[in-house]
Design a protein around this nucleic acid. Structure first.
Length: 206
DNA sequence: ACATCGATCTAC
DNA sequence: TAGATCGATGTG
């Protein structure tokens, strides 16, 4: 079932943990690309020097994070890669969850072409692992770009998240760590706001 | 107008 | 471990 807005309208750390194991959908060119979310990070504007919206700084780019929960925040990083976030908490509270890793479920052949320009069956074991185990990689694999997918309502029919009965069958343990590549963020460097599924091979790093 | 830099990835 | 690569942002 598609997650409703109420799911996202909660404390960001809870949303982040609860997104693990859920499935990210992107309907594009008549095909459904699906990946299980295995790694996330939380960003909360008010107190978090690592967040683009730190100190509730609203710019053209960060505006979406101040809006309704359940919208996408997709931005370009290092001039080359897209990163996808999901806006959380009530309107006016700037916060989001960065999706950092997915396990490819459906549309694997398209993902393989998006990443390596060849069919899934020709991928090496290493390339399969590297299909979507990072925020830039998963955006490329799932054809998510800021031009098309930023500020998109996840309660719509293009980009959304679902839970399923399958999820209940698989118990998993959540590992909590510091976030990655935010060395500039002073005390926020140590916030334990990264979460991932223990032992899942599609997590970006242990 | 212009300088700076990044919630990354890849190849060396 | 360094280089790619460019839009957003801040400053003047």
């Amino acid at each position: 079932m598609k997650l409703k807005r109420e799911f996202y309208n909660r404390y960001t750390l809870d949303v982040a943990k609860d997104l693990l194991g859920k499935k990210l959908f992107h309907y594009i060119n008549g095909e459904k690309l699906i990946g299980k979310i295995v790694e996330v990070e939380a960003y909360i504007g008010e107190i978090d020097k690592a967040a683009h919206c730190y100190n509730n700084k609203m710019t053209k780019r960060t505006k979406v994070m101040f809006g309704e929960p359940g919208y996408s925040y997709v931005y370009l990083i290092y001039g080359m890669y897209n990163c996808m976030n999901i806006v959380t908490e009530e309107k006016g509270q700037a916060a989001a969850v960065l999706i950092r890793g997915i396990e490819p479920i459906k549309g694997k052949n398209i993902m393989a072409y998006n990443r390596y320009n060849k069919p899934f069956k020709d991928l090496t074991k290493k390339q399969i692992i590297n299909l979507a185990n990072g925020p830039g990689k998963l955006s490329m694999a799932m054809s998510i770009t800021k031009e098309i997918n930023n500020n998109m309502d996840l309660c719509g029919n293009i980009l959304w998240v679902e839970n399923s009965h399958d999820d209940d069958k698989f118990e998993f343990e959540i590992i909590t760590t510091k976030r990655i590549n935010i060395d500039y963020a002073e005390e926020a460097v140590d916030f334990p706001w990264r979460f991932y599924i223990k032992d899942n091979i599609f997590v970006s790093r242990k």
